[in-house]
Design a binder for these strands. Sequence first.
DNA 1: CCATCAGTGAACGGTACGTTCTCTGTCCGC
DNA 2: GCGGACAGAGAACGTACCGTTCACTGATGG
Lengths: 208, 208
Amino acid sequence: MAAAAGAVDHRKGPRRRGEALYSAIFDATLAELAEVGYWRLAMERVAARAHASKASLYKRWPNRAELVIAALHHQGGEPDPAPDTGSLREDVLTLLRRGAQRLDSLFGEAARGLMAENLTNPERTANLRANMFTGRNRLMREILERAVARGDIPEAAIKPHLIEFAPALVDHHFLIHGAPIPDHVLRHIVDDILLPALTNATDPADLE
Amino acid sequence: MAAAAGAVDHRKGPRRRGEALYSAIFDATLAELAEVGYWRLAMERVAARAHASKASLYKRWPNRAELVIAALHHQGGEPDPAPDTGSLREDVLTLLRRGAQRLDSLFGEAARGLMAENLTNPERTANLRANMFTGRNRLMREILERAVARGDIPEAAIKPHLIEFAPALVDHHFLIHGAPIPDHVLRHIVDDILLPALTNATDPADLE
DNA sequence: CCATCAGTGAACGGTACGTTCTCTGTCCGC
DNA sequence: GCGGACAGAGAACGTACCGTTCACTGATGG
């Protein structure tokens, strides 16, 4: 918590630069995020809390969305590798549970706010989606490819809409009902929707 | 277009009341919605456009979300009855297409904005969801019940999460990718996800 | 050691909020 | 058909935050 600088006037006192300044700003951003939520997070408040100037913020990030994304990225560690339990069901459930848990945190608060803010701008929405969902989709694809290799599901299951819809349903539940997401919701998605769809996947070529 | 009142000063001129006032405000609201979109729709602008006062607006609706919902409700006619083609696939596709088409209109613009604005407030989100999705869920349930009666799918398919997820996927696509929603997206949802899930639905009792 | 760079805090004009004020048209009971 | 209550119009207010610009001065590198 480097934000404990207190009432230091950085016009006279130690004037931060480089990493120290970034850290102070990111700390202030995350603290504001936790305290008042994304929606009421204001550049003015972050600047004041970090004892930095708004000009310094706007020099680095054009708006609060970029600032928050940077702060989360700065905080976030390495992504976990894809689960590999030998069971498709367990792999998928693990992946979804991991995502659900992530949403029940500062990350989720930010994700909800970022979604809300960018929903009105399709271009930014696409950009945001690329940053947030791409990782999960890659892991899901990995899981499915292993299941295909094991012979658990047909190769036709490797299709974008079959890869993306389970995480999409989790996201939707989060957006509508909030976090935490009950585990039975995840089990329903996997057992009643995803697995039947994957098992019955048919290659369009078979229909010709 | 009752909004064509022009430069009438309603302090002196005919002062509207009751239905006339409501209509003028709703017309102005929908016109603003169409012109600048939900996000830039401001109470100030609506009031000015309707030659009404902000006080009159706030007396009736506490915020723009309520105002827009009321305006849409005022405009909206009777909901169509559930499709009944004799084919589950056609019924569901018709329902989803209808929903997709509805989203590609003023209603969709408003829905996106309302979602964005209320995403940060779980309580309001729930309220909003009740107003927007309940109708569709009822129709979907009706369709599925007919399919069960015909013997097309097992009775176990009548479960909330199986009823709700197809419209949810449509909504999610709309939120992320915008409108119009390509028809093949709807066909993928129905053919590759919904129908396999419904056909394979198993009663939990069968597993005991 | 000094010129340049860069961060701070303050102030600005702008937009929209939600509230409150005065003035006055409209309606209802009598 | 009259007069008071009710309620709408428009303007003004204080608040919040936006994104920008300013003068000042600490830090940095040649």
